[in-house]
């Protein structure tokens, strides 16, 4: 999984802003969404992302897994990642 060409991400106080500059569409996300995007940018796979976030947020694994999968589906649906 990787970010589509011409998709730019910028960190913000609230999390991150995602700008698909080719389609000229803007999205925003919170702090956790920002973490997932950064991990995806670093080439991490879903399982690795879940492990890292479990540790960071000290949350239940299932809860994190649902969140991560849901967020990644949204990114795919909106053409942000391939």
């Amino acid at each position: 999984m990787e970010l589509k060409k011409f998709v730019k991400i910028r960190e913000e106080k609230f999390g991150a802003v995602i700008f698909d500059t080719l389609r000229e569409k803007v999205f925003v996300t919170n702090e956790t969404g920002k973490d997932i995007l950064n991990l995806l940018k670093d080439g991490k796979q879903i399982e690795e992302i879940i492990d890292i976030l479990k540790e960071k947020y000290e949350k239940n694994g299932d809860e994190i897994r649902i969140d991560v999968n849901k967020f990644i589906s949204q990114l795919k649906e909106n053409g942000i990642i391939t």
Partner: peptide
């Protein structure tokens, strides 16, 4: 966590 479209330029 959600992917949202709404954005306030002031933020």
């Amino acid at each position: 966590m959600e992917l949202l479209h709404k954005i306030d330029f002031k933020d």
